[in-house]
Amino acid sequence: MNQQQQNLFRFLVALGDDSVVLSHRLSEWCSNGPYLEEDIALGNVALDYIGRARMFYQYACEVEGKGRTEDDIAYFRNEREYTNLLIHELPINDFAFTMVRQFFVDVFYCEYLKQLMNSSDETIAAIAAKAVKESRYHLKRSEPWIRQLAEGTDESLRRIKDALLELENFVGELFLMSDWEQSLVEQGIAVDRAKLQKDWDAYVQKFLGESNVHFPDSQLQIRGGREGIHTEHLGHMLSEMQYIQRTMPGLQW
């Protein structure tokens, strides 16, 4: 692979990592949801993200050209080789936390994927076109939940506020650009994340403001996911996610 292909490969794996990690977190709600319909809904959102991860990984393997498959990428890399942004890997915590995180990434992906549809890379544009429709639907579900919890009881409001406090330091990383991603932007392949932050802030502040909830502007930004530096949580998650493939490599259902 030349430098350009390496950057593309890195980009595709990173987007796949974001999706597979969030997907696994959401799937942890399976059989633990607050009630049956929500349990199923969270599982379905997880399914959309795993589909997204597969598309990015499959294309990454094609670019790499070494005959690896999406399973090799997902199941046989260690924590330090995963390059997902940290917000995706945080534990599911309580239902309010899961929904606030989902609301944050839904707002982000609706805009990010919309712009990624203009990618000069046809496959990336096609994946974005498919995924953006799913994210718009996810947002239609996460927004009423945030409203309902924020305007519900003292207890549900407290949980929303706790979730906001917990997440505020992880939001900034969504908008961080690295040199290699910047070079893909210049080739018309990737999207400049930094330019999305202002609108994201405005949208989220306005939405939460309607329920009289304030989202604090954090100065502290925790970063490192794209370089493989993770929170303590990812390793534990991967050990569970990868256990069967690591124990019996090549196992098929």
Binding site: E37, I40, A41, G43, N44, L47, Y137, K140, R141
Partner: peptide
């Protein structure tokens, strides 16, 4: 609407 997701990803309840 009872739930935005039903028995499969393509359906709502």
């Amino acid at each position: 609407v009872v739930s935005q997701f039903g028995s499969t990803a393509c359906k709502a309840l």
